[in-house]
Design a protein around this nucleic acid. Structure first.
Lengths: 404, 404
DNA sequence: TGATTAAATCACTTCATTGGAATAAATAGG
DNA sequence: CCTATTTATTCCAATGAAGTGATTTAATCA
């Protein structure tokens, strides 16, 4: 265990990030307001803003008027300050999204995967990204990085399989490094749930939260944790495997070896099975629309699944609350919004937990704001988070790419 | 949400703590070794050590020889650098412990509580502390603070009750502030499980760990989390309520309103009930010896309790692992060591979880090292942790007492 | 004994934040 | 319309933290 000391340079970089994050969350705001928000001296803010403007990350938007005194110049994040790609695949579909640092989607491509082989998939990703840069007239050096999301856990960039294997052939493939080498851009690898949590934190329901748990409903169930303003990946990088929380000791057997795991009751695969889809191990194109349609039609098979999923998720929420006492629990994933809302309606009211006593204005369970593109959107936020978020410990890491 | 900027003074205080923590964990070591461990410049370390020696926190112990070059001067923590008190009560007994900053117990007093009224208890604590300072010839200004542990959760220093009330009459009493005013010393309040986790982290089984969960077996069951090298208290300060993890959906009803909570299967109270103690809601003097004796005698009632407790704890461990992927889970509390070991032996082997794939040299479940005085010992570590641990965020807090 | 090696310190430099004074640009009030 | 007031921002020099490079100290090695 090595503890690193701090120096002026660390403080400098940390402060740039603090200012950037403050602007991001509270824009539009003036230099004077940043001063008050950060506790730094006005002169310091002036210097930092000058630098950030120079770098094209922050821009002046307007002069305020109406109040006394010299009118404040409002600042916000310059969307053209940088771009990131978000890539997700694993549902038989490859989704590539180009966003700017303000979180706006600039381009989007949805393709059928040509092959299941790792090399072929990487080629397809690379070609799509190059075409998109060309089409949007974005220079490669203005791209902060590429976020890659796969529905699995990993440790040191290698897949870890618990239970059934979602992606055979990928287990020992050095995915991140291979893509990074091919693209010449920094690549960040993350599991779907954690990426979604980061996305909600940057642009969605978790914007102002520091501590929350994200329950991700995809083909399986995943969990992403955000603790003390940072994603929590656990001692070995595999935290949030809430799909295997045991909901019913004598319940359905699970490939993981236990019985009654959450994932055996609430997942998109199971919803599809309930609707009569036999090959529902992976979620394929159009499946989500089918689920939305079934809800609209009041299909009793879907409603039965909803009830069962809600009952098991209710327990999972209480367990998470009792263990972590988060500010809130966010429920999200690939489900269409109406289905998600129907699910939440059925989960409530929640039973007692430590969260009962908290301020009444924070609901215990809320819906994620990103839509069904969640995996790719979450992926796209990874480089932004990595380059913007102030956490001194980040600055000691060797491989952090500094954008400021 | 307010984000604070850093300045040189923060870096300074942070680095003092980094050096102190490095010495604490790796002593004896030389200035040159600290340089290599922290990444700071030799001159910086020289300056910092000079300061810390001046303040009496670090001392030179010996000159090394045998190697070439100028012989290194080994340093370690000066035990006389500071003292802390640890106070626990709530088992009908008041326990006060005096330790130095190196973690050595200097004095210890175990008293029957004269009364259950808050004011009377505080008077008794205050008198005991004064007498102990007198007896050990320690000046009050050399005391870093007083740690106070009670077997309950709180939010903003006020008790939060979930289920049965352990300490009637205390609910809205401003415990921490009242004791602090009475003693003229900083008082830190913590729940039993988190304090025990901090204690294990500083001096026990968690010394070299950054991420672990502590399962505390007392009258009830509590949990203390240590994540990224810091105690995790949750969004509202009540994390770790693992006594109410649901182990069996259709199990025994719990006063919290749910069924099958862990606390209904594994706790000292239940062990005592199993041994025929009718009034076992609170654990009283001598009860723990009785349990140890029952194990020695092979009392079948205790063995049955052990089996049941082990089965439920086994599930809890797996849930914690799947949710947080900690480096390890530490089982501790007030149980006598042989009983604790018998319990762990019955919990193993653990079923599958994400922790299966981790390095084989780290066991998934280990026993805490502090003995039955755990609550008071954990309490005593609170001021040490608060004054020594390097975490930049701590330095932004207004009420942190700086010892360096 | 002199060369070599490593630890620790001395004198000086670097640089991000800071503090105080100065400047700019609006409103409020007479 | 003019002046006082208020607030935002910037100029300039000061502060104080870590860092650098040369130097001193004290051991082993040959």
């Amino acid at each position: 265990m090595k503890l690193f000391g701090a120096n002026m340079d660390h403080a400098r970089r940390f402060n740039r990030r603090v200012v950037l994050e403050t602007v991001r969350l509270q824009a539009p705001l003036s230099r004077a307001e940043i001063t008050r928000a950060t506790g730094l001296a006005p002169q310091t803010i002036s210097n930092i803003i000058a630098e950030l403007s120079e770098a094209g990350l922050v821009r002046s938007v307007s002069r305020r008027s109406g109040a006394r005194g010299q009118p404040a110049v409002d600042l916000d994040i310059n969307p053209d300050g940088g771009f990131t790609f978000g890539v997700s695949f694993g549902h038989g579909v490859l989704l590539v999204i180009l966003t700017d640092v303000a979180g706006t989607v600039r381009d989007r491509a949805e393709l059928d995967l040509a092959s299941d082989a790792p090399e072929a998939v990487l080629d397809q990703i690379s070609a799509t990204i190059s075409a998109m840069l060309e089409r949007q007239q974005v220079a490669r050096q203005r791209v902060w990085g590429v976020g890659l999301v796969i529905p699995a856990l990993f440790q040191d960039d290698r897949l870890v399989v618990l239970g059934e294997i979602a992606l055979p052939g990928w287990k020992d493939f050095p995915l991140r490094q291979a893509l990074q080498d091919k693209l010449g851009l920094p690549v960040l690898l993350e599991n779907d749930a954690t990426a979604a949590a980061i996305g909600e934190r940057l642009y969605g329901a978790g914007r102002t939260l520091t501590d929350f748990a994200y329950i991700y409903i995809g083909a399986g169930i995943g969990g992403g944790l955000f603790l003390r303003g940072q994603p929590y990946r656990g001692g070995y990088g595999k935290s949030g495997e809430i799909g295997h929380l045991v909901i019913d000791t004598n319940g359905r057997p699970c490939p993981c070896g236990n019985r009654g795991c959450l994932e055996r009751y609430a997942s998109v695969s199971l919803a599809l099975k309930a609707l009569g889809d036999i090959q529902a191990a992976t979620v394929r194109h159009g499946d989500l629309d089918r689920i939305a349609k079934a809800l609209e039609d009041g299909d009793p098979r879907l409603l039965a699944w909803l009830d069962e999923a809600a009952a098991s998720l209710r327990q999972a929420v209480v367990m998470i609350e009792n263990m972590l006492d988060p500010q809130t629990v966010i429920l999200g994933g690939v489900l269409p919004r109406p289905v998600l809302e129907a699910l939440i309606a059925r989960i409530e009211p929640l039973p007692r937990s430590v969260s009962l006593n908290k301020a009444a204005d924070t609901p215990r369970l809320i819906a994620a704001e990103m839509g069904p593109d969640t995996p790719a959107l979450g992926a796209a936020t990874l480089p932004v988070f990595d380059g913007m978020t102030p956490e001194l410990s980040l600055l000691f890491k060797q491989d952090v790419v500094e954008r400021i």
